[in-house]
């Protein structure tokens, strides 16, 4: 099984009112030196496969088709490093 984490964040230049509100609240808690805060989403996804190349391709398609709205959001995919089975190798 492969465990992956997908992170979706608003693109630069897209106003993030929720991030702004959180930024204001952090400053209100007297944390010194808080700059800009941007809010995003994290998806932890388990895939029943050992094929990392295939998993990467599937995750990218999941992002494009559902997890992210690419009009306003960027995404990044990370696949957890772990014990590799013999057949699980990078191509």
């Amino acid at each position: 099984m492969i465990k992956a984490r997908v992170t979706v964040t608003l693109k630069n230049g897209v106003l993030d009112p929720q991030g702004k509100a959180i930024e204001g609240a952090l400053k209100g808690l007297n944390f010194a030196g808080v700059g800009s805060v941007r809010q995003g989403k994290v998806f932890d996804i388990e895939l029943e496969t050992a094929d990392r190349t295939r998993a990467q391709a599937d995750l990218k398609e999941m992002c494009e088709r559902l997890l992210a709205n690419t009009v306003i959001e960027d995404y990044s995919i990370s696949i957890a490093e772990g014990p590799q089975k013999p057949q699980d190798h990078e191509t």
Binding site: V14, L15, P17, Q18, A21, N69, V71, I72
Partner: peptide
């Protein structure tokens, strides 16, 4: 385009 959270939240 897209519809986002109201600016006022």
């Amino acid at each position: 385009g897209a519809l986002m959270r109201n600016a006022s939240l």
